[in-house]
Simulated scan of single mutants.
Amino acid sequence: MTHRPSQPRADSPRYLTDDRLAIRDLAREFAMTQVFPVANELDPVQGTIPDALKKSMSEIGFFGIMIPEQFGGLGLGVFEYCLVAEELSRAWMSVSGLLARGNGMGGGFTPAQEADLLPRVARGEYLGAYALSEAEAGSDVANIACRATRDGDDWVVNGTKMWCTYAYEADYMVLFARTDPRGDPAKPHRGISAFLIDKQRNHFPEGMSGTKIRKIGYFGWNTWEVAFDNFRIPRDRMLGEEGKGFYLAVSGLEVGRAHTAARAIGLARGALEDSIAYMHARRQFGHPLADFQYLRFKIAKMAADIEAARQLMYSVATDIDTGRRCSLEASMCKLVATEMAEQVTSEAVQIHGGAGYTTDFQVERYWRDARLTKIFEGTSEIQMRIISDEILGRTEPD
Rank of each mutant, 00 (worst) to 15 (best):
T160F: 00
R90I: 07
D184R: 15
R214Q: 15
F376V: 04
A277P: 05
G378Q: 09
T322N: 12
F63E: 03
R214S: 15
P13S: 09
D19G: 07
H352T: 04
V363P: 02
Y218E: 13
G77D: 11
A135M: 06
K187H: 14
F195K: 00
Y166D: 12
N40K: 13
V344I: 15
R182D: 15
C146W: 00
E242P: 05
R237L: 10
F79Y: 06
G97D: 03
L21K: 07
V156I: 15
A261R: 01
G191I: 03
V84P: 03
A129Y: 00
R28K: 15
M66C: 15
V255A: 11
Y294C: 01
I197H: 03
I192L: 10
R235Q: 06
T322Y: 05
Y247G: 01
E364F: 01
P185D: 10
G138R: 01
E273T: 01
A348P: 03
L53E: 06
I306R: 03
Y247A: 10
A370R: 07
L74C: 12
A10T: 08
E377D: 14
D140A: 15
W92T: 01
C333Y: 00
A341C: 09
A22C: 11
R296G: 07
S6P: 05
T322L: 10
F63M: 11
L16M: 15
E241M: 11
F231R: 05
T165S: 15
E329V: 03
R269W: 09
S380T: 14
L98H: 11
S346I: 02
D274S: 14
I216C: 04
G73C: 11
C146D: 08
G220Y: 01
S388V: 06
D180P: 07
D236L: 03
G183S: 08
F109K: 09
A290N: 12
V226L: 12
G47E: 04
R394C: 08
L83P: 09
G245P: 07
R282T: 12
E364P: 00
G64F: 03
D11M: 05
G210M: 07
F376S: 10
A131P: 00
R190M: 11
L272D: 04
S388Y: 01
N230F: 10
A27T: 09
I233V: 14
Q46I: 01
F36V: 01
W221G: 07
G207M: 02
R178A: 03
P119Q: 03
S275N: 04
L248S: 08
A131L: 06
H3K: 13
L328A: 11
D151E: 14
P119A: 09
A100G: 07
I391A: 09
A131H: 02
D19C: 04
K298S: 15
F195V: 08
E347M: 14
D140V: 01
A261V: 05
T260Q: 10
S380R: 12
I375S: 13
I49W: 05
T149W: 13
D151Q: 02
E396G: 02
S251V: 12
R190V: 11
L127V: 03
K298R: 13
F195D: 04
M105Y: 04
R235F: 02
T373P: 09
V35A: 00
R365M: 13
Q70Y: 02
G108K: 05
T17Q: 13
G107N: 14
I60S: 08
G108Y: 06
